[in-house]
């Protein structure tokens, strides 16, 4: 197991280095006149040659490429990701403010998604081609196809008319108002959770179907185990690997901020911060956010991969 963990960690590091280089070069691809545009757009600098040089200095693009890169990486490792071009605060301030919101949304949505998907997927597989299976498959396909932002828009109107509920413009933190905070997360989490459950349910169903045909399930049944033990101990555990992958991917995606849902429901999370950074052309913030999101994704993938080893000993030793 130790070798397996070591191998996986060693594979992650180069990918992390590559992504940092990609993000870094991407920022350097901005044409020079964009910086002039930034100077005039951002207002806080005024449109002068000085302002332009100031931005170049903040970005550090007056130095050679490699020096810049290592400065940036060095900064990241010591928790200094640069200064936002828009707020002129350290970009980490904004991240610290928005990340917990995305985290809360991610956790709630995942819980909803798993709570819906696993039972539905297992039942659909066990009762294949019956009415419940068809319903589950149809609903999941609709869930895959109907864009969440459209549903969200429609639901908001429905809520505002039926319950006179509109998403508060001001975000309420859990410390300020636990009830208000939870209510603010309720609808977006349900919506995201149901959306995510479509993929997970389909994966659970097909993985279960695959496993239920295996010899060891037949053996388990033949030796007189109850159906519940067969399903939960023998089938489900083996069907879990692809399901865990999907759940991990989704969690990573959620942690990166679900931009549109955050925008629609007025949640100032990481996704919305990234969108705002893009509209403000706040390159230091974009750079930091994308790097953070990519690192989270890789970390989650690593954990998922390691969980394979735990779920299936064959993977550990191969």
């Amino acid at each position: 197991m130790r070798d397996y963990i070591l191998k996986r960690v060693l594979v992650t590091i180069p990918a992390l280095v590559i992504v940092s280089m990609m993000i870094f070069s991407l920022v350097r691809l901005f044409p020079g006149d964009t910086i002039v545009a930034m100077a005039s757009e951002s207002g806080s600098f005024g449109f002068t040659k000085d302002a332009e040089n100031q931005i170049r200095a903040i970005l550090g693009i007056d130095k050679p490429f490699l020096t810049q890169y290592f400065n940036w990486i060095g900064g990241l490792l010591t928790g200094d990701a640069g200064i936002s071009l828009w707020t002129r605060q350290p970009v980490t301030h904004e991240i610290a403010r928005t990340f917990p919101i995305s985290l809360e949304l991610a956790v709630f949505s995942s819980v909803v998604g798993i709570a819906v998907a696993l039972p539905a997927g297992i039942i659909a597989a066990l009762k294949r081609n019956t009415f419940p299976d068809l319903i589950a498959r149809f609903v999941s396909l609709v869930g895959l196809s109907v864009p969440s932002f459209w549903i969200a828009t429609m639901l908001l109107v429905f809520f505002s008319v039926q319950f006179r509920w509109i998403p508060p413009v001001i975000y309420q933190s859990f410390a300020d108002s636990p009830g208000g905070n939870l209510l603010q997360f309720l609808f977006p989490s349900l919506l995201l959770g149901f959306g995510l459950s479509a993929t997970t349910m389909r994966m659970t169903r097909s993985a279960m179907l695959e496993v239920l045909r295996e010899d060891y399930v037949r053996t388990a049944r033949a030796k007189g185990l109850t159906e519940r033990v067969v399903i939960f101990r023998h089938a489900l555990r083996n069907a879990f690997i692809p399901v865990v992958t999907i759940i991990g991917t989704q969690l990573a995606y959620l942690l990166g901020g679900t931009i549109i849902i955050e925008v629609i429901f007025g949640l100032p999370g990481l996704g919305r911060l990234t969108l705002e950074a893009v509209t403000h052309r706040d390159y230091t913030q974009i750079q930091a956010n994308v790097m953070l999101i990519a690192s989270i994704t890789m970390f989650v993938n690593l954990v998922v991969d390691l969980s394979y080893g735990w779920l299936d000993p064959r993977i550990r030793y191969s």
């Binding site: 590559i18 992504v19 995606y253 990166g256 931009i259 549109i260 994308v290 999101i293 990519a294 994704t297």
Partner: peptide, 10 residues
């Protein structure tokens, strides 16, 4: 790996 670690929307 590196590209896929960035969510499509981002």
């Amino acid at each position: 790996d590196a590209i896929m670690s960035i969510p499509t929307m981002v």
